[in-house]
């Protein structure tokens, strides 16, 4: 499926600024880093989580633990999706009881991914709070979920796709809005 690129929403500087602002907001909201764990959702959320942790370290001088979740096994649509998802391990310190978790993902859309991630976290333990940070909120929620930290709000139509490219995997830092080809 070839996507037609319509516009660049964020360039490298835009992404950097968003990460920096989100990091400041996380620190302010939680009054420092005590008990904080940044948890990225595979795959793009993983890289954003490391960037936020790095940024928090620059600001506060302190290191925040990072965990990675693979939510494939918690998905509610495994039998419906056309593509078999690639299953990978989660990599997280399971002792999250009492911790302040900041979940990180690239795009907030229906909210179902976040629902899976929260189910999984709660199977590991009882965090004192779960917050959500996303680079892009594109709307169209199907569940009562909202983000605490948003890089950029982008109103979209269902015919559009948000492509987040990060240099760790895509060789470039850029967020595009694209259009699905008409059938």
């Amino acid at each position: 499926m070839a996507l037609k690129k319509k516009a660049i929403i964020l360039d490298k500087d835009g992404i950097d600024r968003a990460i920096k602002r989100i990091s400041h907001e996380i620190l302010e909201n939680n009054k420092g880093i005590k008990g904080l764990v940044i948890v990225g959702i595979r795959s793009r959320g993983e890289y954003l989580a490391y960037r936020i942790a790095e940024s928090i370290k620059k600001i506060s001088g302190k290191k925040v633990p990072v965990g990675i979740l693979d939510i494939t096994l918690y998905r509610d649509d495994l039998t419906e999706i056309a593509e078999q998802p690639i299953l990978k391990e989660s990599n997280i310190d399971y002792n999250i009881t009492g911790k302040k978790i900041v979940l990180v993902d690239d795009v907030l859309f229906t909210g179902r991914t976040i629902r899976c991630a929260m189910d999984q976290l709660i199977d590991f333990g009882r965090p004192s709070v779960i917050q959500l940070a996303v680079l892009i909120d594109r709307g169209h929620r199907e569940l009562p979920i909202r983000a605490d930290y948003v890089g950029k709000n982008v109103p979209t139509s269902l015919n559009e796709v948000i492509e987040v490219k990060l240099k760790e995997v895509d060789k470039i830092d850029e967020v595009d809005i694209c259009e699905k080809p008409k059938k």
Binding site: D70, T72, L73, Y74, L78, L87, K88, E89, S90, N91, Y94, D119, D123, F124, G125
Partner: peptide
Amino acid sequence: LDHAKSFKEVLLRPLRKVPT
């Protein structure tokens, strides 16, 4: 084999169960 590697991680969790 690659999938099994991921499932082995599940066996190390405190709650060794997934809803899949």
